[in-house]
Amino acid sequence: SVCKGGELFTWGDNTHGQLGVGSQTTLIPKPQLVERLKGIPLAQIAAGGAHSTTVSLSGAVYSWGKNSFGQLGLGDTKDRDRPTYVGALEHWKTVFISCGADHTAVLSKEGLVCTFGAGGSGQLGHNSTRNELLPRVVAELWGASVSHIACGRWEVPITCLLRQYTLVYVSSLDKFYFFGSDDKGQLEDERKPNQLIPLPINSPVNTGKSCQGNDHCRCIQSVTSMEFNFVTVFMYFIQNSYLNGIATLEDKEVDAWISNSECPESIKKNIRLIFSSEACINGSFLDKRDGHFKTSKEVSGVDISEAKRFYKKISKNQTAYWEV
């Protein structure tokens, strides 16, 4: 859970360090602050089977927890019990991330998709069932300008096997693309071929083999008639991955502060919320011209001129100014 002040709190099962608090305790019943992310303006969080990821407003990606299949994107299979910066995505301009049981998908501002982690069901979309330890661009989606992504899974009855998939949406084409397993939990002898590359729903499915006969070529039913409603699942993951948003400065809000000479308690409360939090302050003054995507140890990503403009503006109301 992320507070308006930007702090991330986690609790629950911590078998693989997926809570990010640096503790080896397997169960943490009460919320604990994830210290390593303190001061970072978070834009979104996502949780998988036993791994977690977050994206900052500046596009920085952090991952932690289980890493048996490389789902943290760090180039190895070692679990992490604290958020770790995914350096391979430094210039990716990440705007959204989704986690499956053991794989991860990342969306860039330009609409590119990269995936990593477990690939056994073809859920990475690279025309193979190999695992990927580092983020890899889904070549089949290059140029498609994807607008939404979601990773999902289902369990096979009786067995402990998982079937995993990825679903993406291209708003300009109004099409859903699917890859992975859509067995809907069938037993092993009833399994259908995995979809190894992204293809539109209601299109022939390429299993990576010759598509000359019915054994290797089939059609995914239309979204409206599918027994398992992919769209419903897609919207569920989208709605449960976004944050409500940390508190940051808005021009209309600042104008309201200035115009109210008395500076009532409600305004003072908002000012304290934002200016008592490093994350909220950083998020308020990020460079809005894509400069924030270059944030690194060398580049702050903060627009200093915007900060100066704010202080000059707020000084028109001395009561609000001193509260800041």
Rank of each mutant, 00 (worst) to 15 (best):
F9S: 11
G20W: 03
V21Y: 08
K30R: 14
V34D: 06
E35H: 15
I40E: 13
I40V: 12
P41Y: 07
P41K: 06
G49Y: 06
A50F: 09
S58K: 04
Y62A: 08
Y62T: 04
G65I: 08
N67S: 04
S68N: 08
L72G: 02
G75R: 10
G75Q: 04
D76N: 15
K78Y: 02
R82K: 15
G87D: 14
H91K: 14
V95E: 11
S98I: 02
G100S: 11
G100R: 00
V106N: 03
L107N: 01
K109R: 11
E110D: 13
G119Q: 00
G120E: 08
N127A: 06
N127D: 03
R130P: 04
N131M: 13
N131V: 02
P135T: 03
V138D: 04
E140K: 13
S145D: 09
S147R: 10
C151S: 08
W154T: 13
V156F: 08
P157I: 08
I158Y: 15
R163M: 01
V170F: 08
D174E: 12
S181Q: 07
S181G: 02
D182L: 11
D183M: 08
Q195Y: 00
N202M: 11
S210V: 13
Q212T: 12
C217M: 14
V223R: 10
F228G: 12
T232M: 05
I238S: 10
Q239P: 01
S241F: 09
L243D: 03
A247C: 11
E253P: 01
D255F: 07
D255P: 03
S259P: 04
N260V: 10
C263R: 03
E265Q: 14
E265I: 14
I267M: 07
L273Y: 05
S277A: 12
G283F: 02
G283I: 00
S284K: 05
F285C: 00
G291T: 02
K294L: 15
K294D: 09
G301C: 03
I314C: 06
A320H: 07
W322Q: 15
